[in-house]
Simulated scan of single mutants.
Amino acid sequence: MPEKYFEVRWHGRAGQGAKSASQFLAEAVVEAGKFATSFPEYGAERAGAPMKAFNRIAEVPIRLRNNVQHPDVVLVVDDTLLGNPEITDGLKEEKILVVNTVKTPEEVKKITGFNGKIATIEATNIALEEIGRGIPNTVMIGALVKLTDIVPLDVVKTKINHAFAKKFSKEIVDANMRAVDRGHQEVKING
Protein backbone atom coordinates (compact mmCIF):
# COMPACT_ATOMS: atom_id res chain seq x y z
CA MET A 1 0.00 0.00 0.00
CA PRO A 2 1.55 3.37 -0.98
CA GLU A 3 2.24 5.86 1.78
CA LYS A 4 -0.03 8.92 1.86
CA TYR A 5 1.55 12.25 2.49
CA PHE A 6 -0.06 15.61 3.09
CA GLU A 7 1.80 17.87 0.67
CA VAL A 8 2.21 21.65 0.68
CA ARG A 9 3.75 23.87 -1.99
CA TRP A 10 4.72 27.47 -1.22
CA HIS A 11 5.18 30.08 -3.98
CA GLY A 12 6.89 33.33 -3.13
CA ARG A 13 9.83 35.54 -3.89
CA ALA A 14 13.25 35.12 -2.33
CA GLY A 15 13.40 37.14 0.87
CA GLN A 16 9.67 36.99 1.71
CA GLY A 17 9.91 34.13 4.18
CA ALA A 18 8.36 31.20 2.24
CA LYS A 19 11.42 29.01 2.85
CA SER A 20 11.43 29.93 6.55
CA ALA A 21 7.67 29.28 6.82
CA SER A 22 8.11 25.86 5.21
CA GLN A 23 10.92 24.99 7.63
CA PHE A 24 8.98 26.34 10.60
CA LEU A 25 5.90 24.31 9.62
CA ALA A 26 7.98 21.12 9.41
CA GLU A 27 9.47 21.76 12.84
CA ALA A 28 6.03 22.39 14.38
CA VAL A 29 4.67 19.20 12.81
CA VAL A 30 7.56 17.19 14.25
CA GLU A 31 6.89 18.78 17.67
CA ALA A 32 3.29 17.54 17.29
CA GLY A 33 4.55 13.97 16.85
CA LYS A 34 4.34 13.53 13.08
CA PHE A 35 7.00 13.27 10.38
CA ALA A 36 7.75 16.20 8.07
CA THR A 37 10.19 17.42 5.45
CA SER A 38 10.88 20.91 4.16
CA PHE A 39 12.97 21.94 1.19
CA PRO A 40 13.22 24.93 -1.18
CA GLU A 41 13.68 25.28 -4.93
CA TYR A 42 15.29 28.42 -6.28
CA GLY A 43 15.75 29.78 -9.76
CA ALA A 44 18.12 32.72 -9.92
CA GLU A 45 19.27 33.19 -6.34
CA ARG A 46 18.58 36.85 -5.76
CA ALA A 47 16.18 38.77 -3.58
CA GLY A 48 12.82 39.06 -5.28
CA ALA A 49 13.28 36.10 -7.63
CA PRO A 50 10.37 33.61 -7.73
CA MET A 51 10.98 30.54 -5.61
CA LYS A 52 9.14 27.53 -4.25
CA ALA A 53 9.30 25.64 -1.00
CA PHE A 54 7.75 22.28 -0.20
CA ASN A 55 6.47 20.29 2.78
CA ARG A 56 5.55 16.66 3.14
CA ILE A 57 3.78 15.60 6.32
CA ALA A 58 2.90 12.06 7.36
CA GLU A 59 2.23 9.68 10.23
CA VAL A 60 5.08 7.48 8.95
CA PRO A 61 8.72 8.23 8.02
CA ILE A 62 8.93 10.09 4.71
CA ARG A 63 11.02 8.43 2.05
CA LEU A 64 10.01 10.51 -0.98
CA ARG A 65 12.51 13.30 -1.77
CA ASN A 66 11.28 14.90 -5.00
CA ASN A 67 9.34 18.15 -5.44
CA VAL A 68 5.63 18.22 -4.66
CA GLN A 69 3.70 17.62 -7.89
CA HIS A 70 0.14 17.19 -6.56
CA PRO A 71 -0.20 19.39 -3.46
CA ASP A 72 -3.03 19.29 -0.97
CA VAL A 73 -2.48 23.01 -0.38
CA VAL A 74 -0.70 25.72 -2.36
CA LEU A 75 0.24 28.90 -0.50
CA VAL A 76 1.05 32.00 -2.54
CA VAL A 77 3.03 34.48 -0.47
CA ASP A 78 3.16 37.14 -3.23
CA ASP A 79 0.03 37.74 -5.30
CA THR A 80 2.04 39.19 -8.20
CA LEU A 81 2.80 35.54 -9.00
CA LEU A 82 -0.89 34.66 -9.56
CA GLY A 83 -0.70 34.96 -13.36
CA ASN A 84 1.91 32.19 -13.47
CA PRO A 85 0.21 28.89 -14.45
CA GLU A 86 2.73 27.00 -12.27
CA ILE A 87 0.84 28.24 -9.21
CA THR A 88 -2.07 25.83 -9.69
CA ASP A 89 -0.16 23.12 -11.56
CA GLY A 90 -1.18 19.74 -10.11
CA LEU A 91 -3.66 21.30 -7.65
CA LYS A 92 -6.96 19.42 -7.83
CA GLU A 93 -10.21 21.31 -7.36
CA GLU A 94 -11.00 19.61 -4.04
CA LYS A 95 -7.71 20.97 -2.65
CA ILE A 96 -6.97 24.51 -1.41
CA LEU A 97 -5.24 27.56 -2.88
CA VAL A 98 -4.28 30.10 -0.17
CA VAL A 99 -3.21 33.56 -1.32
CA ASN A 100 -1.70 36.52 0.53
CA THR A 101 -3.71 39.29 -1.11
CA VAL A 102 -6.23 42.07 -0.63
CA LYS A 103 -8.21 40.52 -3.51
CA THR A 104 -11.32 38.44 -2.89
CA PRO A 105 -11.36 34.70 -3.59
CA GLU A 106 -13.55 35.49 -6.64
CA GLU A 107 -10.92 37.89 -8.03
CA VAL A 108 -8.19 35.28 -7.49
CA LYS A 109 -10.34 32.75 -9.35
CA LYS A 110 -10.58 35.10 -12.35
CA ILE A 111 -6.80 35.59 -12.44
CA THR A 112 -5.80 31.95 -11.91
CA GLY A 113 -8.69 30.11 -13.53
CA PHE A 114 -8.65 27.76 -10.52
CA ASN A 115 -12.17 26.46 -9.82
CA GLY A 116 -11.45 24.84 -6.45
CA LYS A 117 -11.34 26.17 -2.93
CA ILE A 118 -9.62 29.56 -2.73
CA ALA A 119 -8.71 31.21 0.55
CA THR A 120 -7.38 34.73 0.91
CA ILE A 121 -5.64 36.51 3.76
CA GLU A 122 -4.18 40.02 3.91
CA ALA A 123 -1.01 38.56 5.41
CA THR A 124 1.38 41.36 4.48
CA ASN A 125 -0.94 44.02 5.91
CA ILE A 126 -1.40 42.00 9.10
CA ALA A 127 2.37 41.52 9.41
CA LEU A 128 2.93 45.26 8.96
CA GLU A 129 0.31 46.06 11.60
CA GLU A 130 1.47 43.49 14.15
CA ILE A 131 5.21 43.03 13.55
CA GLY A 132 6.08 46.27 11.80
CA ARG A 133 7.64 44.41 8.86
CA GLY A 134 6.03 43.05 5.68
CA ILE A 135 7.16 39.46 6.25
CA PRO A 136 3.88 37.49 6.10
CA ASN A 137 5.07 33.97 6.92
CA THR A 138 3.65 33.60 10.46
CA VAL A 139 0.31 34.96 9.26
CA MET A 140 0.28 32.43 6.39
CA ILE A 141 1.02 29.60 8.84
CA GLY A 142 -1.94 30.69 10.96
CA ALA A 143 -4.20 30.58 7.88
CA LEU A 144 -2.84 27.16 6.87
CA VAL A 145 -3.50 25.73 10.33
CA LYS A 146 -7.09 27.05 10.28
CA LEU A 147 -7.81 25.56 6.85
CA THR A 148 -6.19 22.16 7.36
CA ASP A 149 -5.74 21.34 11.06
CA ILE A 150 -2.44 19.72 9.97
CA VAL A 151 -0.89 20.81 13.25
CA PRO A 152 -2.61 22.23 16.33
CA LEU A 153 -2.45 26.02 16.69
CA ASP A 154 -1.15 25.72 20.26
CA VAL A 155 1.82 23.68 19.01
CA VAL A 156 2.61 26.40 16.43
CA LYS A 157 2.39 29.09 19.12
CA THR A 158 4.61 27.12 21.49
CA LYS A 159 7.13 26.69 18.67
CA ILE A 160 7.05 30.43 17.88
CA ASN A 161 7.61 31.25 21.53
CA HIS A 162 10.48 28.79 21.88
CA ALA A 163 12.22 29.59 18.58
CA PHE A 164 11.74 33.36 18.54
CA ALA A 165 12.46 34.02 22.24
CA LYS A 166 16.09 32.96 21.65
CA LYS A 167 16.62 35.69 19.04
CA PHE A 168 14.05 38.42 19.58
CA SER A 169 12.55 40.62 22.27
CA LYS A 170 9.33 39.69 24.06
CA GLU A 171 7.58 42.42 22.03
CA ILE A 172 8.55 40.76 18.73
CA VAL A 173 7.57 37.30 20.02
CA ASP A 174 4.19 38.65 21.14
CA ALA A 175 3.73 40.43 17.80
CA ASN A 176 4.31 37.15 15.93
CA MET A 177 1.82 35.40 18.23
CA ARG A 178 -0.78 38.01 17.36
CA ALA A 179 0.10 37.66 13.66
CA VAL A 180 -0.41 33.89 13.66
CA ASP A 181 -3.68 34.31 15.59
CA ARG A 182 -4.93 36.88 13.08
CA GLY A 183 -4.00 34.62 10.16
CA HIS A 184 -6.00 31.86 11.83
CA GLN A 185 -8.99 34.15 12.46
CA GLU A 186 -9.08 36.31 9.34
CA VAL A 187 -8.53 33.88 6.46
CA LYS A 188 -11.51 33.84 4.06
CA ILE A 189 -12.46 30.87 1.86
CA ASN A 190 -14.86 30.66 -1.06
CA GLY A 191 -16.07 27.14 -0.54
Rank of each mutant, 00 (worst) to 15 (best):
T148D: 00
F39Q: 05
E7F: 02
K117N: 12
F35C: 03
E130T: 12
Q16Y: 00
R178A: 13
S22V: 03
G12A: 07
G43R: 04
V139D: 03
T124D: 05
D181W: 12
T158W: 14
V102Q: 11
N66D: 11
E59P: 00
A14D: 07
A32H: 10
V30Q: 05
M140W: 04
E86V: 00
L81P: 13
E41H: 06
E59G: 05
K170W: 08
V156Y: 07
K109D: 06
P71M: 02
A165V: 08
F24N: 07
E93P: 04
H70A: 05
E31W: 08
D79Q: 08
I57C: 05
K52T: 09
H11R: 07
E45H: 03
V68M: 01
P105I: 01
N161M: 12
T138F: 12
S22Y: 06
K146V: 01
I141W: 06
E107M: 06
R65E: 13
T158S: 15
V76C: 03
K117S: 06
P152L: 02
H70V: 02
V74T: 04
M177L: 15
A165Y: 05
E41R: 03
I135F: 10
N137F: 06
V102M: 11
I118R: 08
H70T: 08
Y5S: 00
V187M: 10
W10L: 00
L147S: 02
A143R: 02
K19C: 06
V60C: 05
A163C: 00
G116W: 03
P2V: 13
A127G: 12
R56M: 04
K95E: 12
G15E: 10
E31H: 11
P152C: 01
R178S: 14
D78F: 05
K146T: 05
Q16D: 08
D154P: 06
R178D: 09
V139T: 11
A36P: 07
K103R: 13
A28T: 14
E130C: 11
V173M: 11
G134F: 05
N84M: 02
M177K: 13
I189Y: 12
A18C: 13
K159L: 15
K34H: 11
Q185D: 15
F168P: 14
S169A: 13
V60D: 11
T148V: 01
Q16F: 00
Y42A: 03
P152S: 15
I160R: 06
D89Y: 14
G12D: 04
F35E: 13
T37W: 04
R56N: 04
I96T: 13
K170R: 14
R133E: 15
M1I: 12
A44R: 12
E130H: 13
K167T: 13
K167S: 12
V145K: 03
N100V: 08
T37E: 10
K52P: 04
K4S: 08
R13M: 11
I62M: 07
T158R: 15
E129K: 15
K188I: 14
M51G: 06
D154L: 09
I131Y: 08
A179M: 12
G33E: 10
A143P: 09
H162D: 15
T104K: 11
K103D: 14
K159F: 14
P40I: 02
K166M: 09
P61I: 06
V77G: 01
